[in-house]
C-alpha cells in the first residue's frame, strides 16, 4: 500500500477543503474492508474444519499411490477419448443443424429448431439412458458401432450438437453480409462460398465458445457410468468411485477431481488466450 492519500497538500492547492473522505479515499477504505472480511472468512473456515479427519478421508497417500498409473493411462485416457469422439460427432452434426437452421427451405429450418429445442432441454443423463436402453429395444439386434465408445460418442454428440448448432449459427450470422455478396459476385456457388469464405471466418469467431463446449463435454463424459462399462472402459469418475468404495476412502475422488482440473484449467487458459487474440484481430 503506497498511497499517500491527502497528505500532499501542494499537489492540490486549489481544491476547496471538503469535509470527510474524498471519493478515492472512500474507494480504498471499502476495498480494505472487503479484504479484511475475506481473510477473516478464510481463517474461520480453516480453523473450524477438522483437518485431520479430512486428510484421513481424502488425502491418503498410499491409496493415491495405488491409483497410478491406471488413473492416467486408463481413466484419463478414456475420459479424453469419450470427450473428443463426442465433440467430433457434435461438431459435424451441429454444423449440419446450423446450416439447416439457416436454410431457405422451411422444413429444414423447422426440423433443426425442433432438434435444438429437444436436445438442449433434456438433461444429458436422460440421453445416455435413452441410448443405453431405448435404442437396443427399438432396434433389436443392432449394435451401435464401436461398443461403449460408439454409444458415448453418440450420446455426447447428440447433446453437444444442439448447443454447437446454435453457436455455429451465431458465428455464421456474425460474418458480415458483404462477404457472401463478394463471394457470390466472384462466381462462388452458395455452398462453395459457405465452405471457402463464410465458415472459416465463422470458426474464428466461435473458437472460444466451442472450446468451452469441449470443457462441458469433458465433464459430461462422467455420465458414461449409466451405460454400464467394463473395467477397461472406465473413465475418471467411475474409476474414482469404484476405488473409493473398494478402499472405503474418498482419496480416489480427490485424485480423479485433480485429473479433471489437469485438463480443464489449461483448456480455460487456451480459451482466454484465443479470446484475447480475437479481440486484437478485430481492432
Amino acid at each position: 500500500m503506497t498511497d499517500t492519500t491527502g497528505n500532499d497538500v501542494r499537489l492540490q492547492p486549489k481544491q476547496p477543503k471538503k469535509k470527510g473522505l474524498t471519493r478515492r479515499q472512500k474507494r480504498s477504505l471499502s476495498r480494505g474492508i472487503q479484504y479484511v472480511v475475506f481473510v477473516a472468512a478464510v481463517i474461520a473456515f480453516a480453523v473450524a474444519a477438522d483437518w485431520d479427519r479430512l486428510a484421513n478421508q481424502f488425502a491418503q497417500e498410499d491409496i493415491a499411490e495405488q491409483m497410478f498409473p491406471e488413473v492416467i493411462t486408463l481413466a484419463l485416457k478414456n475420459t479424453v477419448l469419450y470427450t473428443v469422439s463426442g465433440f467430433a460427432v457434435g461438431l459435424v452434426l451441429g454444423m449440419v443443424i446450423a446450416l439447416m437452421r439457416l436454410s431457405s427451405v422451411g422444413p429444414y429450418r423447422w426440423l433443426a429448431g425442433v432438434y435444438i429445442e429437444i436436445f438442449r432441454g433434456l438433461p444429458a443423463l436422460l440421453i445416455f439412458i435413452f441410448i443405453g436402453v431405448a435404442v437396443p429395444l427399438a432396434f433389436p439386434g443392432t449394435e451401435i458401432p464401436g461398443g461403449t465408445y460408439g454409444k458415448v460418442a453418440l450420446a455426447l454428440g447428440l447433446v453437444a450438437a444442439a448447443y454447437m448448432a446454435e453457436t455455429i449459427r451465431a458465428g455464421i450470422q456474425a460474418v458480415p453480409k458483404g462477404q457472401m455478396e463478394a463471394a457470390r459476385s466472384l462466381g462462388f456457388s452458395p455452398a462453395r462460398a459457405m465452405i471457402s469464405i463464410i465458415i472459416p471466418q465463422a470458426f474464428r469467431i466461435i473458437l472460444p465458445p466451442l472450446t468451452n463446449e469441449l470443457v462441458l463435454l469433458f465433464k459430461d463424459s462422467s455420465l458414461v457410468l449409466f451405460l454400464g462399462v467394463t473395467l477397461e472402459e472406465r473413465e475418471l469418475s467411475k474409476f474414482g468411485r469404484d476405488l473409493a468404495s473398494q478402499t472405503a476412502n474418498s482419496t480416489p475422488i480427490l485424485v480423479a477431481g485433480l485429473c479433471y482440473l489437469l485438463v480443464t484449467i489449461p483448456l480455460g487458459f487456451v480459451v482466454r488466450r484465443m479470446e484475447a487474440k480475437a479481440q486484437e484481430a478485430v481492432k
Binding site: P176, E181, A182, S185, G187, F188, R192
Partner: peptide
C-alpha cells in the same frame, strides 16, 4: 457472374486471407 467483376463500397475483402490469397482463392475455387 464470373464474367462480371463487382467492386463494393465497403471493399469486402476476405479478412482471413492474405492479399494474394484474396486474389488466388477465387480463381482456384471458381
Amino acid at each position: 457472374r464470373r464474367r462480371i467483376g463487382m467492386v463494393f463500397q465497403q471493399f469486402n475483402l476476405f479478412p482471413h486471407l492474405t492479399v494474394t490469397e484474396n486474389l488466388s482463392l477465387p480463381q482456384r475455387r471458381v
